[in-house]
Design a protein around this nucleic acid. Structure first.
Lengths: 341, 341
DNA sequence: GCGCGCTATGACGACGTTGTCAATTGCGAT
DNA sequence: ATCGCAATTGACAACGTCGTCATAGCGCGC
């Protein structure tokens, strides 16, 4: 492999001078610089990061440790956000998935340390509370889409499920809906509770009572292998005489089954029932006809902001103590309309 | 950061002896070994990969270069397969996404080289033909889900779209269907042609004529921002008097729209129309009710096999010249049944 | 003419690790 | 007793890069 020494030899200068050219340091004549640059091009020299790291003990590498994110279709946008920021700022990224195993997680932290990463982005597939198995060493860490048990311990950044569900509820209310169904997400998920809570509070503030609401469980059990009642629940809900004129779905994926249930009963969307989802999982929201109105989880921003924050943390700047929350934008498409009269 | 030297000092041996212990080399007494291991534990020593690499010029790192894979919900299983293999075999993985930009791709190859990766897995989101912008340097490379323009140039491994579609067609034929619809995937995609071709050939071998078939374009335009006719095409197809009793969908995602189109016309699945998909994109196949019968793209295996192959390549073994193909397994669920009579 | 400060360059060592080779010890065979 | 050999250990160099410090040339003000 061609090294700085061979370049130096080719250009007839010392290796330190080559180093200066590479790193854009001053005190090199234009003439020398050009000779060196030519040699670099001719030999196809590419700096060796490992050697550089050994000297500087700053790897310019971030580690991403996730449960399943980068191997699961849902929250890939977090990773995309991180990568985009990293590219733009000359950072390299190491990704590893625990697959849910905590032995594996311990190994990964070791592996990261052996690569002398500068910091870790701890990312989860769905919003939850976890304590990273960091070992006793302290490495700058930002948690994305999750937060630690012991509140203010690590910086964290999460989507605002509450606000998203509130906006969605208001949206339906503003369109005249007064009997609204809600099919719950798996209650294990942190977002599930918040979304439902927002739905309850917002409708109640608006003057609706529990009687106007029709809330049922859509799925439960361990995440990824849950029991699925969505189709049955939606069917039952829509078969009632005083059926809801709008249904909020725990997430977009569940909305597929609600669509099918509604259609099987001969109901048209949105003329007979309005349906809204949550997440803005494009594969679903765009494939459904009519396309699904939903609240977008700000995954991309979570990733970008998290990376930026980690960078600040490493630089020793701005150490906010606790957690931040990013709002969910309502994406209006055509699955919800004014209440039929 | 604690180094091998501090461990040596603590254990009262030379650093070379510590190195021997770490690497499990022979010629260390049990007693010495234990003293060293204790020192390692006490100090929390973790080997520095960068320093190791500098000596050995073998990084034990594979680079994954993709267009969008790791940031897109579809083919994440390829990455999962690679990662699983890598974990099991002590390899580290560097992932980078070009986002489709070829300048970016050139940068990434440089970046990989600067990290002295041992080899590259070149992965695409959907099956296609590409020529990697590798620059002139030759790095062991295996292409996954794609293949080079100039056939035998690089080893490649792809799913067998043809066989998958043939099996699916046979499945429908065996169930008595004699009028079959086909809604085409975007023709830009390599898999699209092969799947359609398999459908045509298999039905024709079975004795069906073009008249028994009803083939229409579901989408076209640039991938990711295509024009979508699926719902309209399915509706039209199913409104005919001699409508097909079964429809093959270009992929699973498109099947959502076919379901909705069928249901909007009051058709029951599978009693009135059978529907089959392609890909086994779980988010869709499991959410649809009835669940979708489909052919599974062997993404996980593609990743695992690709990584293994790359490893062999690096080790200098088994240099098969050309491309390999992995079969698609038919996953029977409940969206297809015997033809109604 | 002398010293000063600035520009331009190179010699050298250090980072953490491992390969090479030499040194030391013990033991069985000659 | 001597030799050969295996087991055990360490000293030292080298990998590629960059930080430190020294050196040399040059122009400027006194």
């Amino acid at each position: 492999m061609v090294s700085i020494v061979s370049v130096a030899k080719a250009a007839g200068v010392s290796n330190k001078t080559v180093s200066r050219v590479i790193n854009g340091e001053p005190y090199v004549t234009e003439q020398t610089r050009e000779r060196v640059e030519k040699a670099i091009r001719d030999l196809g020299y590419i700096p060796n990061m490992a050697a550089r790291l050994i000297r500087s003990s700053r790897s310019n590498t971030f580690g991403i440790i996730t449960d399943y994110v980068s191997t699961t279709p849902y929250s890939v946008d977090i990773v995309r956000g991180i990568q985009d920021w990293a590219n733009a700022n000359g950072k390299t990224i190491l990704i590893a998935n625990t697959g849910g195993s905590s032995e594996r997680e311990v190994e990964i932290w070791k592996m990261f340390q052996s690569h002398r990463i500068d910091g870790v982005l701890y990312v989860t597939m769905y919003r939850r509370i976890v304590d990273p198995e960091t070992g006793d060493v302290s490495i700058p860490t930002v948690m994305i889409n999750c937060r630690p048990q012991t509140r203010e311990l690590l910086p964290s950044i999460e989507p605002d499920d509450y606000q998203g569900a509130r906006d969605l509820t208001q949206y339906l209310l503003e369109r005249g809906h007064r009997r609204i169904g809600y099919i719950r997400l798996n209650p294990i998920l942190l977002g599930a509770e918040l979304r439902l809570e927002a739905f309850r509070r917002t409708t109640s503030e608006f003057g609706l009572t529990e009687n106007d609401l029709s809330i049922s469980l859509g799925m439960d059990g361990p995440v990824g292998a849950e029991n699925n009642y969505v189709f049955a629940a939606a069917t039952e809900m829509l078969k009632q005489d005083d059926r809801p004129t709008a249904i909020m779905s725990g997430n977009d994926e569940m909305a597929i089954q609600i669509y099918i249930a509604a259609m099987a009963l001969g109901l048209r969307i949105p003329q007979d029932v309005s349906i809204v989802g949550f997440d803005d999982f494009r594969t679903v929201t765009m494939a459904l006809k009519p396309e699904l109105t939903t609240a977008a989880l700000p995954y991309y921003d979570l990733g970008r902001e998290g990376a930026k924050w980690l960078n600040d943390l490493i630089a020793g700047e701005k150490i906010y103590p606790g957690g931040r929350v990013v709002s969910c934008k309502l994406v209006e498409r055509s699955s919800a309309a004014f209440r039929p009269h």
